[in-house]
Write a protein that binds this DNA or RNA. Structure first.
Lengths: 127, 127
DNA sequence: CGGTATCCTATAGGATACTG
DNA sequence: CAGTATCCTATAGGATACCG
């Protein structure tokens, strides 16, 4: 199935890579705060649980977007930072951010229009 | 939670809007084939079930990215097409596509490196 | 400190059958 | 034709507790 979906939409692989849940907040925070320790990340990415944070960080590390550095001290210290490859996402994120600024209000308006149309339709069906 | 995640990452809303599952293939196909009927869409978006296709199309219609036209004929005919707002996504998708071409190979290489490192570590622990 | 382990639930989404 | 309706399952992810 994945292969066929890929064929129908060439950006599907990059969507899976970059926009699975929690990945953008983590990359964004690392991009803006530099090196961070696990607990700092957990504080800066609100309401993420340690389990899920670990999962996503491992995935991002494997994908080469994030670098994990383990310092064998007592107590142990682990630092996460964005990689050069991860930094190539900055213009991508800016594109998305720009699109948001320009067009999210239109989306909000479309939703309002759709919802009121639905309500009117329901009211009409009612009586 | 959604609000806090938004604060941590300003592109989170647009990610939720554009990159929830199935939305990019649908928008992509509509963008490249023009007007399509429900069953044509179902054929062009491989392996999607009618239930899920309906759900996503309703969402895209509500968000103003897709236009649904109902022709009250027998048999009924419904056409879906991308809206002007939806067409503003073309440069966004191109950005993602360009990033893929430039950097997905690096991601693949990073994964191979990570996996072989893991294997070696496992082999070393084994003896 | 930086995670694991375990358990649990909620939701997305698949399969199948049916209908105005 | 263009969907609904129903049932079902798999997975993501939350809560909590624990560990080297």
């Amino acid at each position: 199935m994945a292969e066929q979906t890929e064929q129908a939409c060439p950006i599907n692989p990059v969507v899976d890579l970059l926009f699975s849940r929690w990945t953008t907040p983590i990359v964004w925070v690392l991009e803006h705060h530099g090196r961070l320790r696990f607990n700092e990340l957990q504080r800066l990415v609100p309401s993420i649980t340690p389990k899920v944070l670990t999962q996503r960080l491992r995935q991002l590390e494997r994908d080469g977007l994030v670098i994990r550095t383990y310092h064998a001290e007592i107590p142990p210290r682990v630092e996460y930072e964005i990689s050069d490859l991860g930094r190539t996402l900055v213009p991508v994120f800016r594109t998305l951010h720009d699109w948001s600024g320009a067009h999210l209000p239109q989306v909000a308006a479309a939703r309002r229009a759709y919802d009121t149309a639905q309500e009117e339709e329901a009211a009409w069906a009612e009586g």
